[in-house]
Design a protein around this nucleic acid. Sequence first.
DNA 1: CGGCTTATGTGTGCTGGCGCACAGACTGCC
DNA 2: GGCAGTCTGTGCGCCAGCACACATAAGCCG
Lengths: 238, 238
Amino acid sequence: MSKASALRAPPTNQLLDALPKDEYRRLAPSLKPFPLVFGEVIYEPGDLIRHVYFPTSGIISLLAKVEEGGTLEVGIVGREGLVGMPVFMGVKTSPNHAVVQGAGSALTLTAAALRTSTSDGQSLPRLLQRYAYSLWSQLSQSAVCNLNHPIDARLARWLLMTRDRMGSDEFQLTQEFLSNMLGVRREAVSKAAGALQDKNLIRYSRGTLTILKPASLAALACKCYRTIKREYDSLLAK
Amino acid sequence: MSKASALRAPPTNQLLDALPKDEYRRLAPSLKPFPLVFGEVIYEPGDLIRHVYFPTSGIISLLAKVEEGGTLEVGIVGREGLVGMPVFMGVKTSPNHAVVQGAGSALTLTAAALRTSTSDGQSLPRLLQRYAYSLWSQLSQSAVCNLNHPIDARLARWLLMTRDRMGSDEFQLTQEFLSNMLGVRREAVSKAAGALQDKNLIRYSRGTLTILKPASLAALACKCYRTIKREYDSLLAK
DNA sequence: CGGCTTATGTGTGCTGGCGCACAGACTGCC
DNA sequence: GGCAGTCTGTGCGCCAGCACACATAAGCCG
C-alpha cells in the first residue's frame, strides 16, 4: 500500500528520471512541455505517431476499439511511462486510441528524436525495453481480469490504479467514460459505483469522483491490482 | 487467406531468417536444436529463464494463470517468433507459463548469449522490438476478443491461428486443453466444438483434431483473426 | 425563470456462460 | 477379457451482464 505521502509526487517523469545525468542533458533540449487536457485524443488507431509523450502528471489511457462504438482500456500510462511505444518498436503508427484520462502535463519528443536517441548503446533503450515489459504485464493481467472478475472488483481495481497514477483521490470521470474503460455497459457501472458509494468508499456526482477509503476499496478489488502494482514497483526499484 | 502451399513451411525460424547473413553466422554456433514435445512445460511463472526458444516448427503457448486451476492463453508463438522475450527486456524470469502446444522443434540460445547478441547495434534487437510489438498487438486484440465474442467465434479463431502456425490441418488437443486456452469451461468447448463438427468444418476424437474447411471456419471466426493476421503479415513483410 | 443537455438511477426480460452431476465411449494395460 | 483412466456428451438450475426503455436530477445558459 502506498503511503499518502507518496500520492503527491513531484512533476517529473520516472523514465526520464532514471536516465544517467549526461544522457538526460543530451535529451533535454528536445523535450517540449505539453498540457494534457481532459478528454483530448492523443492518437487515433492508424495515426502516424509524430510525438511521444512522457507524462509528468495526469494519465493517458490506451484504448482498443470493440467493433461498433465500444472500447476497452488496454493500458494506463502515467508518470512511470511513455505514450508512443510503437515508435521505439520500429512501427510508425498507433494501434490504439490514446486519450487523456486525467488532466496534467507531459514532456514530448518528436518520433525522430526518440528514434535517434535509442539507436545506440544508451540507457534509454534498456529503460524502454523494461517499460515495454511492464506494460505487457499490465495488459496480460488485465486480460485475465476482464474475462474472469465481476464488474465491482474491476471497478475497484481501476479506481485504485488511476489514483496511484494521478497522485490524487479526486478525479473527473463519468459513468459513460468508465464503461468504455472497463468494456461494460454504462448501466452496469451505475450499479457497481452506486454500491461503492452506498458503502461510503467513494463519492461522485456529475463527472467528479472522490475516493474516500482507498484501503477498503483495495479489499474489494481483485488481486490483479496487487499483482500489477507489485510488478511495476519491482521494475522501478531495479 | 493463406494458400494451401503456404501451409507446409520449411523448418526455419523467421526471426533468425530475417537476420543479415553475417550476423546469423555469428549467432549460429550458439544455437542448439531442441525437440518440442507435446505438453512439455518450458517455463513456469517465476522461473529463471535459462534458454530462449526459436521454434522452427510446432507451437508454444504463453498462458496466464487464473487464480485456482484455470489458465488463459495470452500469446501463441510459432515459427514467426521467440519464447523468452523477458530476457530481451531485461527481466530474468518468466511471468507466464509457456507450454508446448504443438509438437515440433526449436533452436535454443542461452539467455546470456541472447543478451550479448542484443547489446550493441545489431539487427537482432530491432527485430525483437518489432516482434514484441506484434505479440503486444496479439495480446491486445485477444483481450478485446475474450471479453466480447462468444465462445464459438473464439474457438474458430483459435483453431485457425494454430493451423497457420502449425502448418498443418491436424493437431493434438483435448477439450480440456482448449478450455484452458480460451479460458472457459470444458463443457462449453464440448458444445462449441460439437457444433463445428456437426457442420463438418472440423473432425475430432480423443485428442486429435482435424480442420476440414478452413475457409468456412474463417467465416465463423470473429474479425479478430483477420486483424491479428494482418498485423503479423505486415510486420513480416517489413 | 425555463428549457436544454448531460449525468445518473431503475426496471424488465433475455441469454451466454457457469457449476455441478453424471453418462457414455474409447484406449491402454494387466 | 476386464478394469481403469481419459476423453467427450448432456442436462438442469443459476446468475451476471446485456439490450432496451425510461425516469430523475443536476448543471448550463439564454
